[in-house]
């Protein structure tokens, strides 16, 4: 799976226990792929000294007003976070 820049995507809304690098505040939120930054080993496996799968890592841009209901109204401010492909749902 290769997602091209500018694609509108959704972050999976799930919260399994353990070491996760997808912060809660972006889970279930809609964002836009800003760019793919390469392929990296999955931290969810590295954290437990397991052999890790390699996954594409994307910088995803969110509108602040989509993340926080009480954010400055009509603001164009954004939040970028790095998200691994297995946390991304195409919509």
């Amino acid at each position: 799976m290769m997602i091209s820049d500018g694609t509108v995507i959704k972050i999976k809304d799930t919260s399994p226990p353990g070491h996760i690098r997808t912060p809660k505040y972006i889970r279930g939120k809609i964002g836009v792929v800003e760019r793919c930054v390469g392929v990296f080993e999955n931290p969810e496996q590295l954290a437990y000294a397991l052999n890790a799968n390699s996954y594409s890592l994307y910088r995803v841009r969110f509108k602040m007003t989509d993340l926080w209901s009480d954010y400055l109204k009509d603001s164009d401010d954004t939040l970028d976070a790095e998200v691994f492909e297995h946390w991304i749902e195409e919509i």
Binding site: P23, D77, T78
Partner: peptide, 28 residues
């Protein structure tokens, strides 16, 4: 969540027309 208020605490006041882009270093 409130980058503009945080910036004010650091003495940085931006006009509302300036877009704030926050980058959360979540991975590599």
């Amino acid at each position: 969540k409130e980058p503009r208020t945080v910036l004010t605490e650091f003495g940085v006041s931006l006009p509302e027309s300036t877009v704030v882009r926050v980058h959360d270093s979540t991975a590599d």
